[in-house]
Amino acid sequence: MGKIAHDQHLPAIAGNADIELAATVSRSGESVNGLPFFRNVEELAASDVTVDAVALCTPPQVRHAIAMFCIEQGWHVFMEKPPGATLAEVAALDEAAKAKGVSLFASWHSRYADGVEPARAWLADRTVTAATITWREDVRVWHPGQDWIWEPGGFGVFDPGINALSIATRILPKPFFVETAELDVPSNRAAPIAARVAFRDTAGTAIDIDLDFRQEGPQHWDIEVRTDAGTLLLSKGGSVLTIDGKEALSHDGDLHGEYPGLYARFAEIVRAGESDVDVSPLRLVADAFLRGRHVTVEPFVE
């Protein structure tokens, strides 16, 4: 029950008629709206509270064991992004969910930004000639005091960067892969504070990403795609769509529609008896770490 749970998950659950909040679990904190509150999922399972599904909003490093326990209880599992600290543990959860007959949802909230599906449709019948992704934000503003993000498995600047990749893997017509990567790692941290990655798609088109956690002033969450029939720009994390300099769609609300969209999708896959576990954004991040040259930079002190 951290910041994202309070800011996004609780309002989205409250606005979805298919889902009722039954209880909350956290190592610290207190009850929400007087509902049952537990320190861990084991306490929840041992209680008399009836649970059909859980939403896990923990850091990725500790999520696998919690998710596996929940699957064993026969609960459907919604996982915040990124779905795990490694690809192998997500694959293990996927197999366990299939064996138990429950739904597993690896959520990517940025894919539900207002401009993403219109951008995907516009690009579908065009030839991409180049793409540039700029994702620069101030870690002190968006992740204050979150030391886990700097630990192994915490992703560093790839925690927001994977949001950009979740959009890019959705809207770009062809798969793409890492060619080179350069990761700036503070001398007192284990995860990168900035990164530059060069991708190439299966048609040979260059796709570049620039990530930086040190951005002050205006924040940048932009994806520009140049094609044989014009230029598309997704800005503000996917909420504003511009084509050839003309605004085609805009919404200024913070994460407008993203988490309601996620919970609608979760209810949909539970009803259908399916899972939705796309690891393509996580795979690209893992490959960036595999291919990346680490550059030691000045210490980061919050």
Rank of each mutant, 00 (worst) to 15 (best):
T24E: 04
R63H: 10
V49L: 06
P260T: 00
V270H: 04
A119E: 01
A14I: 04
G156Q: 04
R39T: 08
C57S: 15
L233I: 13
P60V: 06
S28W: 07
A65G: 13
F158V: 06
I71R: 01
Q8F: 13
E268P: 05
H251T: 10
F176G: 13
T227W: 02
A14M: 03
K174W: 08
F289Q: 07
W108E: 03
P152H: 13
S47M: 07
D114G: 02
E80Y: 11
V128M: 11
C57L: 15
P83N: 06
D48I: 11
G15D: 01
D210N: 14
H64Y: 15
L262E: 08
L290Q: 15
E43Q: 12
R136Y: 10
R189K: 14
L44A: 07
F105R: 03
L183K: 07
G204N: 14
M79K: 09
F78M: 03
W142L: 11
V90Q: 01
H109E: 02
E72V: 00
D184K: 15
K236C: 13
I167A: 05
V270I: 13
G115P: 08
A55R: 01
T134R: 12
F266C: 03
D48E: 14
H9M: 10
E43I: 08
L234M: 10
I209Q: 01
A96H: 10
Y112V: 04
A85P: 00
F158D: 03
I162N: 06
V297T: 14
D287V: 09
G230I: 09
G156W: 02
R189F: 03
I19S: 01
E89F: 01
G217M: 07
S110K: 14
R265P: 00
A113D: 05
W122S: 06
A22E: 05
T24K: 07
M79I: 11
G145Y: 01
Q73H: 04
E216K: 13
W142T: 14
T86D: 02
W142D: 09
P175N: 12
L87C: 02
H9S: 09
A131Y: 04
S166V: 07
E151A: 13
D278M: 10
S110V: 14
A229Q: 15
A23G: 02
K100M: 05
S235A: 09
Q215A: 13
A113K: 04
T50H: 15
R200T: 15
V297A: 09
F105N: 04
G292H: 04
A99Y: 00
E117F: 10
A97D: 02
A46Q: 14
S31Q: 06
A5L: 08
R63L: 04
S103I: 05
G204F: 06
A23N: 01
R140F: 08
G34C: 11
R126A: 13
P144T: 07
E137F: 09
N163W: 08
A17H: 09
F289E: 00
L241M: 15
I13E: 03
I162Y: 05
R293I: 14
R196I: 11
Q61H: 09
V301D: 15
I171H: 07
V270G: 05
R189D: 08
E302Q: 12
V51P: 04
T127P: 00
S280P: 00
A67Q: 03
L233G: 05
V62A: 11
D125K: 14
N33K: 14
